[in-house]
Design a protein around this nucleic acid. Sequence first.
DNA 1: CTGAAAGCGCTAACAC
DNA 2: GTGTTAGCGCTTTCAG
Lengths: 331, 331
Amino acid sequence: MPTIKDVAKAAGCSTATVSRALASPEKVSEATRSRVAQAIAEVGYAPNVAARNLRRAESRTIVTLLPDISNPFFSEIINGMEEIAHKAGYQILIGDCERDPARAEAYFNLLPTNQADGIILLTSDIPPALVRHAGAPLVMACEFFSDIDLPTVAIDNYQAACHAIGYLASLGHERIATIAGPISNPICRERTQGYHDTLRSLGLEAAARVVEGDFGFRSGYQQGLALLQDEALRPSAIFCHSDEMAIGVLKAARQRNIDVPGSLSVVGFDNIGFSEYCEPELTTVSQPRHEIGQQAMRMLLSILAGEDVVRRQTLSTQLILRKSTGRPGCA
Amino acid sequence: MPTIKDVAKAAGCSTATVSRALASPEKVSEATRSRVAQAIAEVGYAPNVAARNLRRAESRTIVTLLPDISNPFFSEIINGMEEIAHKAGYQILIGDCERDPARAEAYFNLLPTNQADGIILLTSDIPPALVRHAGAPLVMACEFFSDIDLPTVAIDNYQAACHAIGYLASLGHERIATIAGPISNPICRERTQGYHDTLRSLGLEAAARVVEGDFGFRSGYQQGLALLQDEALRPSAIFCHSDEMAIGVLKAARQRNIDVPGSLSVVGFDNIGFSEYCEPELTTVSQPRHEIGQQAMRMLLSILAGEDVVRRQTLSTQLILRKSTGRPGCA
DNA sequence: CTGAAAGCGCTAACAC
DNA sequence: GTGTTAGCGCTTTCAG
């Protein structure tokens, strides 16, 4: 591989000039600049990034920490992030934590050694101590910590839940249950709060029922089975904190011979690709995932550039009406 | 951040000794080694990776190129790769190509500048020229090129298809169709070949019908709709080259009021998580994804280490029998 | 606007 | 077993 020296030789100038021609062209005369450009093409030069990083003490790499890479919810967010990062000459390193603090720690350890310039957190399920002593810019997307104030881009989970519950109530549902994500998760608390507040304002609080899942298919299925077990207590609608759990509920209902939406309405959250292909198609809360990814990355790059940023961006959600919701008892 | 010099000073030795204590402890005396270890803990040292990479002319980074990060089929493979890579001190950079040759090229360009040491290809949908002139180790996983012989770990697609079709035929199906992935894709050709050969050996070739999809839900749905349109020509079973397409077919059948498995059997490929939660649960060909990821990474690391490798590893598949298949006309 | 020169932090000959 | 030394390729003062 040719180095900057080879280019300098070919262009008849010093390595410093080549470097400048690349990094700050305006500081180099028109003539020199074009000679350098030609020399670069001639020798087939590409800068050695490790050398540049060492010298500049940066890595041009952003880590994205997520709880589970197999959840398709994240992929569109990552696409949005990548789009912005790539334009700015940054790379993304995807870190799958799998609820393992050691993994999270390994990724945070990339910061002090200049292997990463910053981290975007798509999960709050990591040791707070890591976050507090990160020593490099951090941005939260989708989630947040209850006790640590980080720059954040997210939706209004409270409002989204209110909206979903309000819609179910407007359909005539009076017994609305929730299958939440982990209660330790602040966004789930917000959603649950929105759920309770809406029920209360509608006088439906007596029939409130919240069970906990982990966002995955299986937990939705199991909690759905439990929720639908006792006919006397059976909810007529279930609001789920993820589409996977909602799809699990759909399976539970099928197994219990409960028609959806005839005898049970189900609302999901996230609008993943599957939600259009399950039976029945899922009514769900859609988040602007691509935009969340873009904004989070923009925010982090701004911070890295030393610019001031709006520390809290809230993007809007949309309730997508499909076939899993209807008036109660219309079977 | 403390450097190796600080450690040397604290341990009362030279930087070279510290470096050796870290890289090849057996070359350093017991006593020195422990003094170095203590000094490292004392000053809180962590090696600067950019400097090491520059010096060693390596990056300890492996790129994984895949066609679409939102396809959950890949996530378990990536987990397997990460497991092995991490143990060996390597990082994984996930490259989503999105069928864009420019993206693929950008990732290949990391090779000559030592930003990546090798690439694992999970897609064959990239310009062959890139592959031919990569200038660093490449390994294929799952897929392969018809005209470029790369070290590969994959399943026997031909056999897997034969097995699936044989099973369908054993159930009594005589009109078996296939929704293939892109015909330009060699693995799809193999599967299609297995399909035809099996039908022929069974005397069922006259009713053969192959249409092309792109592995996604929508294409399965659309091709399913088309395949099920004309009652006279309607297949009694459809073999799909991906679970997503099979799930699309399920939706198409529902829309056409065709009972699965009563009037139509459907077989998928990949055994993604959703295949257990769709209606009916999907019979599908399962690939050992975790193991594929592990083996592919092991192979690449061996090549990097200059070891000889078995250039072609074939892992076994399993036909998972669930609810989407049955005897024809048993509705 | 350009060149000389120092050095980022680390490793690997090469000596001893 | 350990120290000395010369860079890896690049950027960035500092002079001019």
